[in-house]
Computed example of a mutant assay.
Amino acid sequence: MYSIEDLKSKILNNNIKIRLVFPEGVESKIVEVATMIQKEGLADVTLLFNGSHEKPQNLDPEIKTVFVKETLNKDMLERILEIRKGRLEQEDAVVLVQKRNYYGALMIDMDLADAMVCGLNYTTADTLRAALQVVKTSENYSIASSIFIMHRGEENYIFTDCALNVDPNPKHLSDIAYMAARFALKLNVKDVEVAMLSYSTAGSGLGPSVDKVSKAVDRLKGLETVENGFLFEGEMQFDSAFIKSIRDKKYPNCKLKKERPDVYVFPDLNSGNIGYKIAQRLGNFEAIGPFILGLKKPVNDLSRGATVDDIYKTSIVTIYQAIMKGSK
């Protein structure tokens, strides 16, 4: 899997210059990261403010700025009324266009930006609502989802979905798994292996949750091939997935060959959110993300407690996602 430095190198060596928008220009951490990204030539950055009085005096002149409440953008107003036709009155549309999270999403929709990073002040719900209503889910998937890159030393794993979908059905769960596998391939993971997690291993337990995972795996079997670079297996408990000796004993016919798979798909948000936080706090893994998959263009959410380093790493991966979208 590529490191952040590897991704930076690939970004700089690519001929696509990504336009990255930060709706929270008023935040000093955002300004610091935006300045780093602009100076390093990783993207062309736009910062959004409510008014010109919020703009820092020493802001890098190469960074573009927009003051969303000083002038009503009539093109954006017309566009959001078109997108939300029949569900939004004009007076409500005026309010949305002057919200920086919606303004940033509309910039992406109208090809004024390629990607967005938001969430230092906005809640996850605020960030994703704007993304899902305006940028929208790709026609290739039934759902958008989230992943965390769990990093510790030389170890890197992908956990999904830990931040977005409360109780995905089998179709949704299979799309969540497939998107995560494709994301791993784009990060240069070789021969991606995906574990579909449950409280049951190969039929050892019963219940609706087990059935859901089993049905998702059945759906994925029509998609997976070694030639495509990935394999899925499940349902399985986490110890069976993570420790090969246990897997060999509990699941002797398992197709997974690696000591530890690359991607871990949780059956619901409850288990996923708890799982990544246990790994983070007890296992001392760094949780990088969440990154949102399945949108037409990248929009990624920040924790409201994100550090400058967190924001910078999220921005690098977001820029790389946008390049992958463009190269497609």
Results as ranks from 00 to 15, higher is better:
A306S: 15
F242N: 05
V263P: 02
N284H: 14
G275D: 07
K250A: 11
L231Q: 13
F291K: 02
K277S: 13
F285M: 05
P261K: 08
S245W: 02
S209L: 15
N273G: 03
M236Y: 11
D248P: 00
K257G: 01
N253D: 14
E224R: 05
D262L: 11
D239L: 03
V213L: 02
D218I: 07
S240E: 06
G289R: 08
D262C: 09
Y251H: 12
L269Q: 05
S214L: 14
I278Y: 15
N300E: 09
F232Y: 14
K249H: 14
P267T: 04
S245R: 11
C254F: 09
F230T: 05
K221F: 06
V217L: 09
R247N: 11
F238T: 03
V213P: 01
R219M: 14
N284E: 14
I288N: 04
S245V: 14
G229K: 09
C254I: 11
A306I: 00
F230D: 04
I243N: 13
K257L: 12
Y264P: 01
E227R: 13
D262S: 12
G289E: 05
L269S: 08
P252A: 11
L282E: 03
K221W: 09
G275V: 07
L223A: 07
F230W: 15
G294Y: 10
Y276Q: 10
E259K: 03
G275Q: 08
F291S: 01
S240N: 15
S303M: 03
L269D: 09
E233G: 10
I292C: 07
A279K: 14
S271T: 14
K221H: 11
D248K: 13
R247E: 08
K221Q: 13
N300M: 00
D248E: 13
L282P: 03
S209E: 15
V299G: 00
R219P: 02
V217C: 09
Y264A: 04
A279E: 13
I292P: 00
T225L: 11
K212A: 07
I278C: 13
K257D: 01
S214F: 13
K258T: 07
K297D: 12
V217W: 06
Y276W: 04
V263A: 04
N228R: 14
E286P: 06
G305H: 10
A306F: 06
V210F: 08
S214K: 15
L295P: 05
I243Y: 15
K258I: 04
S245L: 11
G305M: 07
D218F: 08
P261G: 06
E259V: 09
K257F: 10
I292D: 05
P298F: 12
V299P: 03
G289Y: 08
